[in-house]
């Protein structure tokens, strides 16, 4: 466990590194003197403007954030609901995977963006967002779940087998607890990729609301201040979600040792 002092120190250094990054950006933007590289003051002004006035269509920043959050959650939840059970099933019955991998594996390598035309002709409205985000989040969740089952320690299985444990008991008490941390990692990676897909998804969703849409709108106008605000918001929300995830993980998996690579 980190001491309180150590925690304060890491907060301090994180703030310091943000400050250093801001200084570098300011110097760069002062040197360029170009509308493409707005100063921090201009970015801040764009941020305040987006909150108080809204964007060029009068849609406020929080409506954009909210819209994107719902889409992310829909796609991500679908990815979890499908990816985890499917990964578990294919891990427990490897034949299922071995006999279908020729169809599963190639799909994994098709970038979500390449699916855009297909999504446009196949789907409408909200399902387009959900589909594209699902595509991004599904495979990391599915693959890590699948692989984690094969890494269950056979010794732990034997411990309960000697006592005559049935297969259902082995799955509930040994396999599931042992794969949960890996599934959580897969979910964390999946969530990251879900956010990476948001701009692509909102490119084709048709509605004028969403953080990705916001960026696209101002890209057409070449107004970098608002674009940077949109980028930072995606980054910050992703960061907050990841932190929440880590805190929950630490709570649930109390039994895991704290590994330190200091």
């Amino acid at each position: 466990m980190e001491g309180r002092k150590e925690q304060l120190k890491s907060v301090f250094y994180n703030l310091l590194s943000i400050a250093v990054a801001a200084v570098f950006w300011s110097l760069f933007s002062a040197w360029q003197q170009s509308p493409f590289f707005p100063s921090i003051a201009q970015i801040w002004k764009a941020f305040i403007g987006l909150i108080t006035v809204g964007d060029i269509e009068g849609i406020g920043l929080f409506s954009h954030i909210w819209a994107s959050l719902i889409r992310i959650f829909a796609g991500f939840a679908a990815a979890c609901v499908l990816g985890i059970p499917l990964g578990l099933a294919m891990g427990l019955w490897p034949k299922l995977y071995k006999r279908t991998r020729a169809i599963i594996e190639p799909i994994r390598f098709i970038p979500p963006i390449a699916w855009i035309p297909m999504a446009i002709v196949m789907l409408v409205g909200f399902s387009r967002y959900a589909f594209l985000i699902w595509l991004g989040a599904f495979f990391p969740i599915f693959i890590t779940t699948l692989l984690s089952v094969t890494r269950v320690n056979p010794l732990h299985v034997n411990v309960v087998k000697v006592f005559g444990a049935k297969r259902s008991y082995i799955i509930r008490k040994i396999v599931i607890p042992s794969v949960l941390p890996d599934i959580a990692t897969g979910m964390r990676v999946g969530l990251g990729i879900a956010w990476m897909c948001i701009v692509a998804a909102e490119m084709i969703g048709g509605e004028m609301v969403g953080i990705g849409r916001l960026i696209l709108k101002y890209a057409e106008l070449i107004r970098m201040g608002e674009i940077i605000v949109g980028m930072l918001i995606i980054g910050v929300i992703g960061f907050i979600m990841n932190e929440i995830f880590i805190i929950i993980e630490a709570r649930i998996f109390r039994w895991r040792s704290e590994v330190s690579i200091d």
Partner: peptide
């Protein structure tokens, strides 16, 4: 029957 394994066999969770 019980078996004490050679490897450390405590279930981590």
């Amino acid at each position: 029957i019980s078996l004490v394994f050679q490897e450390p066999s405590c279930i981590p969770w």
